[in-house]
Amino acid sequence: MIREPPPFFHRGPSPLARLTFFTLAAIALMIADHRFQALDRVRLSLTVLVHPLQQAAAMPSQALGRLADYFTLQDRLVRENAELKTKVLEQSSAAQEVRLLRAEQEKLRTLAAARSRYEGGILGEVLYTARNPFTRKIVVDRGVMEGVVAGMPVIDGTGVVGQVTSVGTFASEVTLVTEKDQSVPVMLLRNGLRAVAVGSGKDGSIDVPFMPVSADVVAGDVFVTSGIDQTYPSGLVVAQVTSVEKNAARVFARIAARPAAGVENHRFVMLLPLPAGAPARPEARAEEKKPARGSGKARRDPQKPNAPR
């Protein structure tokens, strides 16, 4: 070989030796990260390094968006303004009713010594969709500094977006409800039927497995969170049923639903606090992290589809 240097030029181990070393190192890292979640700290510190670069990269498109906002046509603004005004009028009567209800509820709460689950939410802006073709996640510009904790439910104006799965210093990752095996305990709004909505791993679709063929579900039904997992507050819209396939040959009906929240295309989201009085559940946390990594099939246990996490 003409490229082999004379032995007095020291060039370190051969490429093959290096390849073996680095392959083993990479595999060890993957096992440590996947099995034991041991590297969260390492990841967190690397995020600090990566984050400013990501912000710098996101800047041009954000600036472009602001510029587009600036040059919006006058008549569109006027139209939007009129629409918003009618909407406010429509909603103000409802809002007054809500105020009354809330006052009543507060009284009841003081008796029950509980707090509203919707208070103390953190408003975050979506930085970008995680650039990873294998999972469905978004990155939000709120992190440890703002008090974000792993496990927090995330909503937007129309429904549940997902759940915080890993927290960085200045940003955190939200696993969307459409992520494969990401599950949310739900309830059918019409008749209170309980179920678990499970992400299908495809954009814009959620499955509701393990519903008997005889279950009273029709296309157009709305699933809201049932709240029995004590992670999601009850009553948040999760998905709307798009199709129900009932085949007598199968044990379960095949129910497909569409996420209610603009899961793939929102800009602002709300991170809701975890219940204050809930006991710490280290095993549950580990469980929660698994689907984010693309596994955790154990939760698709047909025996207990409603099992709280």
Partner: peptide, 15 residues
Amino acid sequence: VSDSMLLGQHALAYV
């Protein structure tokens, strides 16, 4: 880290 993948995947592919 930036693609929020399991640590080591890109590393192995690049190596």
